[in-house]
């Protein structure tokens, strides 16, 4: 496989970061608007069980998109911070593995939540 198509290159990582960031700008704005003063409720009222459940079930796909975008973008960013900070080639595999495991766990938890409600 020519290295041009290699998905292990760092640039694919950054392309993913940029793409997810652009998605999140819209989706996260939408999420914040649902808990904003524009809803006409006080902050304690937007955290009630019925309101949150209604939002999550009604906009299930949007929140699923947000979950995947935020977890992948965020943990990838954390990985970048860690490989810069620890900067030993030997540690990179360990950092990558920890990040992938954490990512899988959070995505599984979030997906289960979105399906179970």
């Amino acid at each position: 496989m020519p290295s041009k198509y290699s998905l292990l290159k760092e640039s694919w990582n950054m392309i993913l970061m940029y793409a997810l960031a652009l998605i999140m700008i819209f989706v996260l704005t939408f999420h914040l608007l649902l808990v904003s003063p524009l809803t006409g409720k006080t902050f304690d009222q937007v955290l009630t069980y019925s309101y949150v459940l209604h939002n999550l079930t009604y906009y299930r796909i949007v929140f699923g998109l947000l979950l995947y975008a935020a977890v992948i973008h965020g943990l990838n960013g954390l990985r970048v911070v860690l490989i810069e900070w620890l900067h030993v080639k030997r540690f990179q595999w360990i950092i990558n593995m920890i990040i992938v495991m954490l990512m899988a766990f959070l995505l599984a938890l979030g997906t289960y939540t979105l399906i179970a409600i």
Binding site: S3, K4, K9, E10, S11, M14, V80, I83, E84, Q92
Partner: peptide
């Protein structure tokens, strides 16, 4: 170009 990109597009290359 291609020769250099392989060096630069590394985990401690241009994207840091």
């Amino acid at each position: 170009f291609e020769e250099r990109i392989e060096i630069l597009d590394d985990s401690h290359g241009v994207w840091r």
